[in-house]
Nucleic acid binder design. Structure first.
Lengths: 141, 141
DNA sequence: GCCAGAGTACTCGGATAATCCATGTCCGAGTGCGTACGG
DNA sequence: CCGTACGCACTCGGACATGGATTATCCGAGTACTCTGGC
């Protein structure tokens, strides 16, 4: 598993976009909230754009906007957008095929890994960006 | 070897230890099956030893042995041993506390993240190292 | 024949170099607005 | 007064350094077996 905070930051950014309404936000502004570099935000949003969650616009008044209703974006959608495929990557270099365990272990793990990921994604589907925005607004009062 | 495959390699190694019976295996032998460096195996097994899953022995005839019945080791145990705490790390640097989203997002995510991880771990608990060994032996016939 | 001791081979464990990935910095490409000029 | 063309500020996007982390290599510490010499 990639122990990076990409996923958390992605949720943060989408929540911020939804929180600040329909007007576009620049990567520099967003980086001020996340407390990181604008380029990191751009690269992260590029993968979210590939997942059709956001759009980018250049020039003055440009920036990033949501393409979907925040209530329709679940944490599962975000996870898939930033992590791509499986949460549990297999060996980066193939195991030894001459070992009875090495040549079968990957095929044996596909099932349990997929099952565990499905269980997790089903749980993540229960939370939407819209719900996070609602709670954030409630907390800021 | 990518850090992200630590979990898969850990399962591989434990399965191999269980497969090869009670006799200890050296890190060099194990690395031959995983197809990586012996030191990587040692460091990985060090964390499994900290979790009381394996023991190490120096000298001739030494190596690594399981400390528990393979049927009693679940994939969840392995995950906790190698990943430690949470699957979804929060921001590496704290978000901007002056932003209403930044100062609340982390506390808002703790719940959903914990819930999703619980769901995943519950699913991982269904598979044991013993079951993997059984399937590996069945496949090699 | 039996025991003690040294020697040797084997394994883990830690320290140090090399490599890889993520992050940060810089500059170019494109866009939209404002302004100035000409009709 | 109106329309057009130019210039400028702003933003994203990609190319090139930089830093930290992971990995690989090397050497030392400890252990068990084996061989040898003495009793």
């Amino acid at each position: 598993m990639n122990n990076s905070s990409r996923y958390t930051v992605a949720i943060h950014v989408l929540t911020l976009l939804a929180y600040c309404g329909p007007n576009p936000l620049t990567s520099e502004f967003i980086s001020g909230s996340v407390n990181t570099n604008p380029v990191v935000i751009r690269r992260l949003l590029a993968s979210l754009r590939a997942a059709k969650l956001v759009s980018s616009q250049g020039g003055p008044g440009g920036g990033w906007q949501l393409l979907k209703d925040p209530k329709q974006i679940t944490l599962r959608d975000v996870l898939i957008a930033v992590e791509g495929g499986s949460i549990f990557p297999l060996h980066s270099s193939a195991p030894n095929p001459r070992c009875p365990v090495g040549r079968t272990i990957q095929s044996l793990l596909v099932g349990p890994f997929q099952s565990a990921q499905d269980a997790m994604e089903q749980d993540l589907n229960r939370t939407t960006i819209g719900a996070l925005v609602k709670r954030a607004k409630a907390s800021s009062e």
